[in-house]
């Protein structure tokens, strides 16, 4: 459906914007390495079903490889910046101080409690949706502490937030057309979108209505 396609396209756009940000500035200014590492973990645990070869569609399979590949590529680009621009890299690391154990631990526990089946594949899948819902926190934390962000960084976060927000009308659509109600995705998706809500509001006020981007 239209919402699902738009969501996936905005997810793709967010990654293109992120890669463009790193390429253009040749440094990692404003990007949280911790959030990016969490996304590698999210995609690697979610798409373990690639190994079972029970593929749903060519589209799904290609997108899964794309998300795993680009998330690892981002880490590689950021590590290159460590050599090319060590001062900026150190500056980023000094500001990227969110303790991710507070995201990893609860996500693992929630995955053990809420899952569709107590199998490795399903537990990893559930862990990935819980972790994804909070993976942006180190990035938002970094932004709120520095107070300012580059335009591309804000577009990246916006596109990434929009992706999960668009999944919500997709789930409503699927509930009415397929009677499908996938409670874990829906709950974590709502949580994820809620975490972006402040950001969306500031983005709307500052970026769309003009003016610089500044977080309180």
């Amino acid at each position: 459906n239209i919402f699902r396609i738009s969501a996936d396209l905005s997810h793709l756009a967010s990654i293109v914007i992120l890669l463009e940000t790193i390429r253009k500035t040749r440094q990692v200014d404003g990007i949280s390495l911790k959030t990016q590492l969490l996304y590698v973990l999210v995609f690697c645990t979610r798409y373990l079903d690639l190994l079972t070869f029970r593929w749903t569609s060519l589209y799904n399979t290609l997108m899964k490889f794309f998300f795993i590949g680009t998330s690892i590529y981002v880490i590689k680009l950021m590590q290159e910046c460590k050599i090319k621009n060590p001062v900026a890299y150190k500056d980023m690391m000094a500001r990227d101080t969110f303790q991710i154990k507070y995201l990893l631990g609860p996500s693992a526990i929630l995955a053990m409690v809420f899952n569709y089946k107590f199998t490795i594949l399903e537990l990893c899948w559930s862990f990935s949706v819980w972790l994804e819902s909070v993976a942006i926190l180190p990035q938002l934390f970094m932004l709120s502490r520095s107070g300012k962000a580059g335009t591309l960084t804000t577009h990246y976060i916006f596109a990434l937030g929009l992706y999960r927000a668009l999944y919500i009308p997709n789930w409503i659509w699927r509930y009415y057309t397929e009677n499908r109600f996938e409670k874990l995705s829906i709950f974590t998706g709502l949580l994820q979108t809620a975490l972006y809500s402040d950001f969306f509001y500031i983005y709307y006020k500052k970026v769309i209505k003009g003016g610089g981007f500044e977080l309180p």
């Binding site: 996936d8 079903d49 899964k64 569709y116």
Partner: peptide, 10 residues
């Protein structure tokens, strides 16, 4: 059923 949810979303 809920026990056999197909993860066809990304």
């Amino acid at each position: 059923s809920q026990n056999e949810v197909e993860h066809d979303e990304l």
